[in-house]
């Protein structure tokens, strides 16, 4: 007998939606795994800082060096700090940091939970009187949600310092003057929506990594696939969320 083919995309969306709903249900119910949450904040936040910091520094430096010839051409090189500041704070800082975060943390969570699934560690946790969803998924997702905004703030600062050094390769500019130009050209609607969206980016990276790892199958091959698809799916989600954030920001503040 012929059977209708299961729509894999719809099935995946349905499973993921159920997973997200379960996350919120489990997150508000006691028992709260505070100790594990703090541990995960350390693992996810502190241990990502060096990679995020390095890429942010290079990002600020390169952006300034690439931008400079065009700005000089139009005679507006004095606007470089303002332009780089807005670009980094509003868009490049949050998105690039979130993508780096997805690559490092999303894949790590996907592989860790996937490995725990295929080696029965999640089952062992359940028979040890622990709700594995609460202990593994809720803590990691919350830690990613809270830590990415912190990393983005730090990354923005480091990227601006990289930009300051980039400016000083070609001319001498006082550090205080550089930062005054950056801050003076920023409005609250540049900073607030950009900061707010990083919570959603962090949540997306955490929940997707957990979802892919938690339902990992087919042994070690499945673990690799979970890690890989966690990065791909969370990166796509970051761009979709960013698009939505920009539309919502423009709707509220008419920033155009």
């Amino acid at each position: 007998m012929l059977r209708p083919k299961k729509n894999l995309l719809l099935s995946e969306i349905g499973d993921f939606t159920r997973f997200v709903v379960r996350f919120f249900r489990e997150a508000v119910r006691p028992r709260y795994e505070m100790q594990e949450l703090i541990h995960q904040c350390f693992v996810i936040g502190y241990k990502s800082f060096s990679l995020v910091g390095l890429t942010a520094f290079i990002m600020g430096l390169v952006l300034t060096m690439q931008l400079r010839p065009s700005m000089v051409h139009y005679g507006v090189e004095a606007e470089i700090p303002a332009m780089v500041g807005i670009a980094i704070i509003r868009e490049i800082g949050p998105v690039i940091t979130a993508l780096i975060f997805a690559g490092k943390i999303g894949s790590s969570i996907g592989a860790e939970l996937g490995s725990m699934r295929v080696t029965e560690q999640i089952d062992a946790m359940e028979v040890s009187g622990t709700n594995p969803f609460k202990y593994l998924v809720v803590t990691r997702t919350l830690a990613a949600t809270f830590m990415l905004p912190v990393l983005v703030v730090l990354a923005d600062g480091i990227a601006l310092y990289g930009s300051f050094l980039g400016v000083n390769i070609y001319e001498v500019l006082n550090f205080r003057l550089f930062y005054t130009q950056v801050i003076d050209n920023l409005a609250y609607y540049d900073v607030l929506p950009a900061f707010a969206k990083t919570f959603f980016f962090g949540f997306a990276v955490g929940i997707v990594g957990c979802y892919k790892g938690y339902y990992s199958t087919k042994g070690t091959e499945g673990v690799g696939r979970s890690a890989n698809s966690a990065v791909v799916m969370s990166s796509v989600l970051i761009f979709i969320l960013d698009l939505l954030a920009v539309q919502i920001t423009e709707l509220i503040w008419h920033t155009r």
Binding site: M116, Q121, A124, V127, S128, G129
Partner: peptide, 26 residues
């Protein structure tokens, strides 16, 4: 479950924990 021990085929020891932490966990 607290009165039923389960020895898994794959042992299911927590990779990120020491032997002591594995034993303390349950």
């Amino acid at each position: 479950r607290a009165q039923v021990g389960f020895l898994f085929q794959s042992n299911a020891l927590y990779d990120s924990m020491t032997v002591r932490e594995n034993l303390e966990f349950p």
